[in-house]
Design a protein around this nucleic acid. Structure first.
Lengths: 339, 339
DNA sequence: GGCCATCGTGCAAACGTTTGCAATCGATGC
DNA sequence: GCATCGATTGCAAACGTTTGCACGATGGCC
């Protein structure tokens, strides 16, 4: 019932606690004989170093705090999965701080400090420059996922939202759509803002002005209603870009409900490439969110930042791809080479 | 850059570190004057107690480790959300241990020990009695979610899967289905086994034998294929119970693909009541998984177990409900009262 | 064989708290 | 006025590690 400590191992193995400690920290010098003795005893006793004690004295915790909001979108779960897996493979533990109701990752940041996390990864909640500054000042590296904050020492990794939006627009234009619409949170979210920017920019270069409908909530019902209104309204689009696959799927549903045929009457492009996008009933053309790339970018920046806390702030953008399925039309083949 | 400790606060406030500590642990005696002085200084200095140090000496950590697998199903995210929120509201921190590739929550359990967690909640991975015993012996409470393990001191909370399966069968029988089928993991998963048991039991009481098709993987494509084969096979069912909403939705898709009309030719009932079940394109009748009830049951058991580590093992089953939507038929009204 | 570099080891001081014990203090009851 | 009592406080010892320092042993090199 009482914990087996480093001293127990030391006593039984006939060495000092320091020796045991050195056996368990790689890179430290210990003779082969000692190592073997210690490891044997440790195994027999079932000894495991206390990470609390280790973290208290040591400089590194191997602990990272993740600030996340509620995972309303399947995409969030994918992301968390990938990140958790990557961290685990690296021997890093993950502490979860839900940025629940309170506006900010505020409490999450403090929690990270309380446990002396090596770093905090912020994937949700609004993060004020003040809080970021607080952390950096306290020596806690902050890595933002999916947004950029112009504060010294705060790194960011994100999908190339602007590029993704552009890809969507170019595809729609290329396949003959002329009345483009955007459906999303609009200015309310960092990534949505960027996606819209890329989409509208590319459309404008093709001489098309985008009609944007911003929705207050990503909830399926809300989006379905907004899409229905848009499609049944006075100026229905023939090409729609939704800032999220989930929203795009709701839009597909709405199109069916009002009797529009996809992609004949209406082309739809989503963002993220979640598994459901590939389902038979959706066959959604979408911009692929490079989850693996973003996650490994985060780990990369984590390493760099830990190695050199004073390095310049870095923003890493991971390029997106386009996954063409059945909610967009084929490129008109007869136009090929004979304009 | 250097951390502000309890001694800093003590020095500036002109009291001993003990006094500061007592101000910050409720239930300890401290005069109003001291309290005020200390709190003021602490706020000015931005002092926060180190949870590492506190956990090292104290007996309680306010830290709980959650062992989870990859969240392939949207349901998993819902569950995690609810649990994280409830724990946060209670002031408990949550550490994530993904039971990734390695078969067991094994590594997760060890991680929990390393950080002196107050308890470990196991929601995924197979958990061997040996490991459970290891934990209990080490004084680490284990709470299982969604399964039962017959080991002393290991508590469980689960949805009433058997009851849910029964509800599904009774609904199908009541609405006139006679050729019942089950689609799920079959014996491979604890909850699926129970759901099947409840379903087949109730069907058998109505004189119907259930055709079960067990699928190796919950992946949408796999399930879609299995359902298609079943529907196009020699003995297509007129009532299907899927052990998961996600699988039920894949089945709906398959039914449409082979030209079956739901619910006219085929009734379908799912399990979990995820948001997607309510979508217009699915309108899935399903057994409601009482997430809130399960989560509060977990917290309940957590408290009880911490209060009395030697109490008898407890298994708590939370009743399910039935949410009738459009994938099942209306009860035949003309049969009412005139059999 | 002497010298220097290297390696392995133990001692003791941290790390930032909590908490049992004893002491102080003011008030209360007689 | 004195003994008692409870509340408040400080001291010091834990909690389980890591790590700088010093010291002895070992081995290579000339």
């Amino acid at each position: 019932m009482t914990r087996v400590t480093i001293k127990d191992v030391a006593r039984i193995a006939g060495v000092s606690p320091s020796a045991v400690s050195r056996v368990f920290t790689d890179g430290a010098s210990a003779s082969e004989a000692t190592r073997e003795k210690v490891l044997t005893v440790a195994r027999d006793l079932g000894y495991r170093p206390s990470l609390l004690a280790r973290g208290l004295v040591g400089t590194r915790t191997n602990l990272v705090t993740l600030v996340m909001g509620r995972m309303h979108d399947p995409f969030d779960a994918l992301f968390l999965d990938e990140l958790a897996e990557a961290l685990a493979a690296r021997g890093t533990r993950l502490m979860l701080a839900s940025a629940g109701r309170d506006a900010a990752g505020d409490s999450g940041l403090l929690q990270a400090l309380d446990y002396k996390s090596d770093a905090v990864i912020v994937a949700a909640g609004t993060m004020s420059p003040e809080h970021a500054d607080l952390c950096v000042r306290a020596g806690l590296p902050v890595i933002l996922s999916g947004r950029v904050l112009d504060a010294p020492g705060v790194d960011s990794v994100l999908a190339d939202n602007v590029g993704g939006g552009r890809q969507a627009a170019e595809l729609l234009v290329r396949t003959g759509c002329r009345r483009l619409a955007y459906l999303g949170r609009g200015g309310a979210t960092f990534s949505d803002r960027e996606r819209l920017k890329g989409f509208a920019g590319a459309a404008s270069r093709a001489g098309i002005e985008v009609a944007t409908t911003a929705v207050a909530d990503r909830d399926h019902g809300t989006v379905f209603q907004a899409a229905t209104d848009l499609f049944a309204g006075p100026a229905p689009p023939d090409g729609l870009f939704a800032s999220t696959d989930s929203m795009a799927i709701a839009a597909i549903e709405a199109a069916r409900a009002v009797g529009l045929s996809v992609p004949d009457d209406l082309s739809i492009v989503g963002f993220n490439n979640v598994p459901a996008a590939a389902w038979r009933s959706n066959q959604l053309t979408t911009v692929d969110y490079p989850i693996a790339g973003v996650v490994s970018g985060i780990l990369d920046l984590l390493d760099s930042r830990l190695a050199d806390p004073d390095r310049a702030r870095e923003v890493r953008r991971i390029p997106t791809g386009l996954v063409v399925r059945a909610t967009t039309r084929e490129k008109h083949p007869h136009r090929r080479g004979c304009p």
